[in-house]
Design a protein around this nucleic acid. Structure first.
Lengths: 114, 114
DNA sequence: CTCATATTCAACCACATGGTTGAACAACAC
DNA sequence: GTGTTGTTCAACCATGTGGTTGAATATGAG
C-alpha cells in the first residue's frame, strides 16, 4: 500500500506499458536470449529493439552478460515481483470492497424475503 | 501467459506508470472521491489532475458519476485485476526457475558433504 | 589484415505526455 | 438576475517516447 519505491515503480510499470517489451519478457521467461533473438519477432530495426532492451534493463527487469560479441539477456524477477506486490496490496482492497457489496446485497435480499 | 488484451494492458500499465495516478488509485481504494478531492494532495493545477483522471478513466480503472456540478469517481477493480493476472502468470515462471536453482544448489551441497 | 556478424551510438523525426494558463460551462447560493 | 464553485476545454510549451537511418565499435572467421 505504501508508495516507498515510487520512482522505481514508475520505471517498472512504464516498461510493462509496451507490448513489444512484454513480448520480450515472455520470451525471456523461456531462458536466456541474445539481443538479436529478442528483436527477431518484431518488424523493427535492431537499434529500436536495443532501446527496448535498455528500458527493461534500466528498470532492473533483465540483466545482460556480454559474451564475446553477443549480449545474453536473462530475466531478473525482482522488479516484476515488486509490481506484483503493489497490485496485490490493491487486490486486498478491492476484494474487501466487493465482499462488502456482496454482503450488502445478501442482506437486502434477506430483508425482502421474510 | 498469452498476450490477449495487448492494447488494453498497454493503457493499464501506462496508467500505473505514474506516481500521481497511483496515489489517486490509493485514495480511491478508500471510497468515492470528487475530482477536487483527488487533486488536493498534489501541487498541480486542477486541469492537470483532470487529465490524470481521464487517463485512469480511459484505462477503465475508474468510473465517474456526475452528480450536480461535482464528478464522483470510484475504482473499477477489473483492469487492476487483469494487470495482476498478467504478472501472476509470470510469477509462476520465475518461481519455477528459482525453485529449480534451489534444487540445483541443494544437490551440489549434498555432493560436497558425503 | 580483411570481411562479416552482433550490437550500440548519434542524429533526426513525428507524436505523446505532463504541465501551464485563461476562458468556458454547469450548477448551486443569494 | 449576479456571483461563486467544481470541472472541463483549448492553446501552448518542454520533454519524453518509439521509430528511423547511417556510422562506429568490437569480436569472430578466413
Amino acid at each position: 500500500m505504501v508508495e516507498q519505491h515510487a520512482s522505481h515503480l514508475d520505471t517498472v510499470f512504464h516498461a510493462l506499458g509496451d507490448a513489444t517489451r512484454r513480448r520480450m519478457l515472455r520470451d525471456l521467461s523461456g531462458g536466456e536470449r541474445t539481443v538479436g533473438q529478442l528483436a527477431e519477432p518484431f518488424a523493427i530495426s535492431l537499434a529500436a529493439a536495443s532501446k527496448h532492451i535498455k528500458v527493461l534493463e534500466q528498470a532492473g527487469m533483465i540483466r545482460r552478460e556480454v559474451r564475446g560479441r553477443t549480449h545474453l539477456c536473462r530475466l531478473d524477477p525482482g522488479p516484476l515481483a515488486s509490481a506484483h506486490q503493489w497490485l496485490t496490496a490493491y487486490e486486498r482492497f478491492w476484494t474487501d470492497r466487493l465482499d462488502a457489496l456482496d454482503r450488502l446485497l445478501r442482506e437486502e435480499d434477506a430483508a425482502n424475503a421474510p
